[in-house]
Structures are given as C-alpha cells and as structure tokens.
Design a protein around this nucleic acid. Structure first.
Length: 276
DNA sequence: ATGGGTACCTGTCTGC
DNA sequence: TGCAGACAGGTACCCA
C-alpha cells in the first residue's frame, strides 16, 4: 500500500506528538512479517524520540537513559497504517501492534500483515541495518540526479518500471508512483533500463521527484484503507493520470489507458504519450 | 551479479 | 446466494 508519500504523511502526522513520550505498555496482536525481536518489557519505560523515515521504513528511537538507545523499525507493507490516539478504541481484528505511551497509543492496523515492527539496538545494527542496507537514494536527496539515474539504469537490462520498483536505485516509488512518474516522463514502462538515454533519464529523475512531491503535498493516495495517524485519507488518487484508469481516456491525448502485467504487478500507461 | 518467480495474508470485487 | 478466481499500495528470499 503505502509508498513514500503515504509513509512520510504518516510520519509527519504523529512524530511531533509522540516525541518525548514515555512508553507505558506494548500490546501485540497476530504475528507480522517478522517477530518483534525483543521482550516487550524491555521497551516499557523508554522515551520516544523523533521518528524518521528511510525509503518506506520508519525508525522510531526508544532511548533508556544514557545506557541504551535502540528503537523500532516499522514498515506498513501493503495494507498497513499507523494511528496515534490519546483514547484508542479496543484493539480490533487487524490491530497487531500498540505502543502505549503517556500521551497516546501508536497503533499499527494491517489486515494483510505484510507490515513489520522490529526492534534493533540502533538504526545501524541488527535487523534495522540489514533491512536498510540495500536501499537506493532518497528521491529528494540532491545526489539523486539524472546522471545518477542514467548510470544506474545502464547497469541493468530489466524493464525501466521494474528498475524503479526495485528500490535499490531510488527509494519511495511503488506501483502507483512508478506508473505515474513514467507517464509524466513520457517513457514506455517496458523500455529496457539500459536503453534509456541521458536526457530521458534526466526527465525521469525529475518526474520521480515531482510525482512523489505532489503526492506528498496531497497527503498520499488512499485506494482503500490508507489513513494518516489522524485517520485522514490521501487525495492524490483523484489526480492520477494513469494508475487504476484502464480504458479511460488519457488526459493528454485521449487514447485509452492500457493495463499490462510486469513482474506480477499491474502497469498502467498511455501507448501514445509514452515512448520506448 | 542479474533476473525471474514465489512466498507471506486477508479482503473485496467480478463473473458464473 | 454461493463459490471460484483475480486482484490489491511491498519486498525478502530462493533458484537458475
């Protein structure tokens, strides 16, 4: 579900409110993608720090005086959302993790349970380090340039859409925004990554950054169940050019939007506006 | 190393 | 109404 705009929207909606809170309890529901990796009693009494984001992961620091840092690495998977509430309802069927603090409860709701909440002694150690290790550049990092994208794409020969989705060149674009960025850049998603010219890579880098920024400004996309930590839905899906619009007329040329499958996922594109 | 496929799990929608 | 099948925002892991 959540791609970078949704994860960042989520982070911004609870980070300042939970920063400085004391953990009073932890409640676990059904298993998520990985075990928590720590005895929950080790978390109780800790102080929550400022949540940060790397790709689609959130890192929530939980310090214990001077002796121990550590924190939780969280991922929303396909169907996860985090809610922060001072007076949370009783945990429902899909509520699988509660971090109860003196200011409110941070709750992960995730029907499909592809999400994760994993303890690490620091962001640079253990499971967190392992999961973050292979990630590509942040799209808003000045180092993410057309030249960087061009050189990275040159090294492989998969379809450019799959190269974007892989997340080891640039992070943050999932299925919706990979489709939308390629549409904005006028590039056919089936184009082999090593065939993308320098100028087109430049255009694509700009499109990735702008698409994600625009979605972030709209609070992300809500297709079915995404909500930020206040329960607000995103608005970007209403402006999508191609995603989820199979058969509808392309806004630029009127050609019906086409749907194909790449890597077992739907790709939406305009056969006229997007060239190989 | 690269590319391709599978696996994880639940809900919703479509068509017969 | 029931039921099978397709599909859904992600990504680690296994195999060739």
């Amino acid at each position: 579900m959540p791609e970078l705009p949704e994860v960042e929207t989520t982070r911004q909606s609870f980070a300042d409110r939970i920063d400085g809170a004391q953990v009073t309890a932890v409640r676990l529901g059904k298993p998520l993608r990985w075990p928590l990796g720590v005895d929950p009693t080790q978390i109780v009494g800790r102080t929550v720090g400022q949540a940060t984001r790397r790709g689609k992961y959130l890192w929530l620091p939980l310090s214990q005086g001077l002796e121990s840092d550590g924190g939780l690495l969280m991922h929303l998977g396909m169907s996860g959302s985090l809610n922060f509430n001072a007076a949370p309802a009783a945990a429902g069927t899909h509520d699988h993790f509660d971090l109860v603090t003196n200011r409110g409860t941070l709750r992960l709701t995730d029907p499909r349970r592809f999400g994760a909440v994993v303890w690490s002694d620091s962001r640079e150690e253990g499971m967190a380090a392992k999961l973050l290790a292979g990630l590509g550049l942040e799209p808003f990092d000045p180092a993410f340039t057309g030249e960087h994208l061009y050189r990275s794409l040159k090294r492989r020969r998969v379809a450019v859409k799959l190269a974007l989705l892989a997340g080891d060149i640039v992070v943050g674009a999932g299925n919706i925004y990979a489709c939308e960025a390629l549409y904005a850049a006028g590039i056919d998603p089936r184009t082999r990554s090593d065939k993308i010219s320098r100028p087109r890579a430049e255009k694509l880098a700009v499109a990735v950054r702008d698409t994600l920024a625009r979605a972030l400004a709209l609070g992300g996309s809500t297709l079915r169940d995404f909500r930020d930590a206040h329960g607000m839905a995103g608005q970007f899906q209403l402006q999508a050019g191609v995603y989820g619009r199979e058969g509808e007329a392309c806004g630029a040329c009127g050609t019906p939007v086409r749907r194909i499958v790449q890597g077992q996922r739907s790709t939406f594109f305009c056969t006229r506006c997007q060239k190989r």
